[in-house]
Design a binder for these strands. Structure first.
Length: 154
DNA sequence: GACGACTTGTTAT
DNA sequence: ATAACAAGTCGTC
């Protein structure tokens, strides 16, 4: 059974959970109708509210259901472990996985669970890089976390 | 700073 | 199977 919840921030952040696993997070102009009962969902809602109020949260404790290719999964598994407030580049991940920065960008675009898997913490060598929901959201997320070495262009 | 070449997984043809 | 595309990067002007 599928649960849904919504948190308001700059936009609405809608989250979908199935069998205790988060499988989709979306940024939207409108909230989703909330239907959740599990302790996981309740805890996640509180954590999201805490996170968007600017406090440190580690989302690694949540299980995710990644319905993506094995390549994308391998990228996201690494990104999931980038700590709060820290930032790496596309090129850095490319070197780890022996692929191209371009391919890393594609994989991140396919991340079904932004925020939970913090793809916003991956930036370009000389700038912010892209973000499918809008670069301004990426900028606000990094601002929220106080990500350091980008402060000039934030 | 702008531009082209190179890259590589995904997507469309 | 093949070509076009993209959330990048590097060398050159």
């Amino acid at each position: 059974m599928i649960e849904s919840l919504s948190v308001e921030w700059k936009v609405f952040v809608n989250v979908y959970i199935e069998n205790g696993k988060v499988f989709k997070v979306e940024f939207s102009k409108n909230p989703v109708e909330e239907k959740f009962v599990s302790t996981t969902a309740k805890m996640l809602k509180k954590d999201l509210e805490k996170y968007f109020s600017g406090r440190r949260v580690d989302f690694r404790k949540y299980d995710v259901d990644l319905r993506v290719s094995s390549f994308v999964k391998s990228v996201l598994e690494i990104v999931k472990n980038i700590p709060y407030g820290k930032v790496v580049t596309y090129g850095y991940l490319a070197r780890i996985l022996k692929t191209s920065p371009r391919a890393i960008g594609i994989a991140l675009k396919l991340n079904p669970v932004p925020v939970i898997i913090p793809c916003h913490r991956v930036v370009a060598k000389d700038g912010l890089g892209g973000f499918s929901a809008g670069v301004w959201i990426k900028r606000e997320l990094l601002k929220l976390e106080g990500a350091t070495f980008l402060s000039q262009q934030l």
